[in-house]
Simulated scan of single mutants.
Amino acid sequence: MAACVTTKVLPLVALCCLVDGGWAMKWVRFSVPTWASRGEDVRLTCDYDLEGEQLYSVKWYKAGREFYRYVPGDWPPQQSFSLHGVQVDEVRSNHKMVTLRKVNLDADGRYKCEVLTEAPLFKTLVRSSIMHVVELPRGVPQVTGGQSEYRLGDTVNLTCSAPRSIPPASLTWYINNQEAPQDYLVSYPSHVDHEGRVEAKLGLLFRAERWHFVEDNMTLRCSASIHSLYEKEVLHSGIVVEPLVPALLEDQISGAPTLVCAGITACFILLFL
């Protein structure tokens, strides 16, 4: 009687192992690009290991709406559905990947892959991820304003502009490789064109002081970036010529030590008692 009970229990244990143990189906690779450029082809990957189970279907969804399925038991096994912003290239798609042709801004959103095995277990794998579609700037940032020579006390006034893009490029000003203080920055209103593109613009405005120069040279750098897809920069340099005369006289009157520069490199300290 005991031997009979053991015989009936073993299949149940084996079934549990199939569902929850080492024989359960699993992901090999799931990949949806985080960023994609408008107009390029994009590949979505849904690779899995069924561990001996038979595939019933693979379905892809965007924002909850199905746009592609692969069902081995159907003919043809591939089928794509019309969805605004999503164009499936069936020739370059199969049961483990989907290729989207020339994505546009409407392709931005969450994508989900659903893998289902045959009866009787109907095991399911589901993964999703968000893809952002951007339009990169065409060209490099430009700097306007500024001058090649500065006297101490002069106003430094420059504007950095990055070509139109979606989203607008993030701009950062640096003074001698140090990020410029916030109170030096000048913000400008954004202008959006008929395609939704925005030109990024950021000003730099401050009074030139001795500490802004390294060996009588000041290097200003504007960096433009859109995540890791676009990174460009432009430089502007100027040299110090001589201190502003009114500032020099003021220091003399106050009796403070005064830094005097003759030309570019010759500087000495005068102590007024």
Rank of each mutant, 00 (worst) to 15 (best):
T117M: 04
K123L: 14
R65G: 05
E250H: 07
K112T: 15
L105W: 03
L270C: 09
K26V: 13
Q87W: 00
S225Y: 06
Q182H: 12
V88R: 00
T219W: 12
V140D: 14
S228Y: 07
T124M: 11
Q87A: 15
M25N: 05
H194R: 14
L105S: 08
R29C: 11
E40M: 10
P167H: 07
P167T: 10
R164G: 12
P189L: 07
A224N: 02
P167F: 03
L100N: 03
E118R: 06
V214Y: 11
R29V: 10
H212A: 03
H132P: 08
N217V: 15
L249H: 09
G85V: 04
S170E: 11
P181W: 15
G255Q: 05
G109T: 01
P168D: 08
L244C: 14
L105M: 14
H191P: 01
E51F: 05
E231Y: 09
L100F: 01
T159Q: 05
P181S: 05
V28L: 08
W27D: 15
C160L: 03
A262R: 15
T159G: 04
P11G: 06
E51M: 15
Y61D: 02
T124E: 14
A24H: 10
Y188N: 08
S128R: 07
A119C: 12
Q79W: 09
R151N: 12
D106Y: 07
S161N: 06
L152P: 00
D251N: 14
P120T: 08
L152H: 06
L116T: 14
D106G: 01
S237Y: 05
H95Q: 11
L158Q: 02
E215T: 13
H191Y: 11
G153A: 05
T124Y: 00
I226A: 02
F30L: 03
R38A: 13
P77W: 05
P77S: 13
Y184H: 06
L185Y: 00
G255C: 04
L235A: 09
D89P: 06
Y68E: 04
L44D: 00
V234E: 08
R210T: 11
C46V: 04
R207N: 09
W27Q: 09
S165M: 07
W23I: 12
L271Y: 14
L136D: 08
G196F: 06
T258F: 06
A266H: 12
K96C: 10
Y184P: 00
G139H: 01
P76D: 01
L158P: 00
L12D: 10
T34P: 08
S170H: 13
D106N: 06
L205K: 06
V5H: 08
K232F: 11
R29H: 13
Y48A: 04
L171P: 01
V86A: 02
